[in-house]
């Protein structure tokens, strides 16, 4: 019983962490049709922001607040310098963002060395939960993820920015003809997506070793979740639950490597059977 409960919580924890990472990716892709291969490195920058803040004597909470701001600004600069030159050249956006990811990773190695850092986490106690004890910080991560999902829903369905963004997703040129500045919207969206990645990096940092390779490890499950779910918010939630659930279960019962293989095999089979993801086009809202 305990095992099942812990397993369920672990799976939920991982799934929500994936959603946290995937959200920025989905938003940027939905609006700009850009697959941001540098998303993992933006995540990385979020974690290192926290490292820097803690080294400078600032606390965890300050780092958590600064990370999305710093990484959002980085996103703004990247959009202006690079991304906007390759819009409408789909494969080139993948390559360009990928080149960015290499450069960021190297810059981090240059600044911080290849070794890993650990981050002091707050909330170092267990919470009694239906008879088992679960780390409070993991519950905190889940809370942040849920909050981010709600925030995104609110922004997209209850604000003018969200309406404009949805309009651009649905029909870019018509939205422009109605007077919506798609250029500014693109920039804001990329920055917003980057900020989410930065937040995710800072939130996840205490759970993992902060090193230059950490971005990739999270990027792939996020991508697989998006692919299996079919994109969009609901699709991503579904995909993340599948990926998170399968990965946690197999990792606990067998080994983490086997879990990755199984998740990947699942994703490939789903892609073969449902090329548009499990939700088909319907997930794209």
């Amino acid at each position: 019983m305990d095992l099942i409960l812990t397993l369920g919580l672990d799976a939920l924890n991982f799934a929500l962490a994936i959603v946290l990472v995937a959200m920025g990716l989905v938003i940027i892709f939905g609006l700009m049709n850009v697959i941001n291969m540098a998303h993992g490195e933006l995540f990385l920058l979020g974690a290192y922001t926290l490292v820097v803040v803690q080294q400078a004597g600032g606390g965890f909470w300050l780092g958590l607040i600064l990370a999305p701001i710093v990484v959002g600004l980085v996103g703004l600069v990247l959009e202006e310098l690079i991304i906007r030159h390759v819009y409408r050249r789909f494969l080139d956006t993948i390559l360009a963002t990928w080149g960015i990811s290499i450069a960021i990773k190297q810059a981090v190695i240059l600044g911080f060395g290849p070794a890993s850092y650990t981050v002091d986490a707050p909330l170092q106690f267990g919470v009694d939960f239906l008879g088992t004890t679960y780390p409070a910080y993991r519950l905190f991560i889940m809370g942040v993820a849920v909050l981010v999902i709600l925030l995104t829903l609110f922004v997209f369905f209850r604000t003018r920015f969200g309406l404009a963004a949805r309009g651009v997703i649905a029909n870019r040129s018509m939205a422009a003809c109605l007077g919506i500045n798609t250029r500014r919207l693109d920039r804001a969206t990329f920055a917003f997506g980057a900020a989410l990645a930065g937040l995710a990096g800072a939130v996840m940092a205490p759970q993992m070793s902060v090193d230059p390779q950490m971005g990739l490890g999270f990027l792939i499950p996020a991508f697989l979740a998006i692919l299996t779910g079919g994109g969009g918010l609901t699709g991503t939630l579904l995909g993340a639950s599948l990926v998170g659930g399968i990965d946690s279960t197999f990792a606990k019962l067998w080994s983490p490597v086997l879990a990755q293989v199984v998740v990947f095999a699942m994703a490939i089979v789903v892609i073969r059977l449902f090329p548009n993801g499990l939700l088909g086009g319907r997930g794209r809202r």
């Binding site: 003018r160 309406l163 404009a164 309009g167 939205a175 109605l178 007077g179 919506i180 500045n181």
Partner: peptide, 10 residues
């Protein structure tokens, strides 16, 4: 929402 989209830049 369609009508509001017509007002956003104005």
């Amino acid at each position: 929402e369609n009508l509001l989209l017509g007002t956003l830049g104005k």
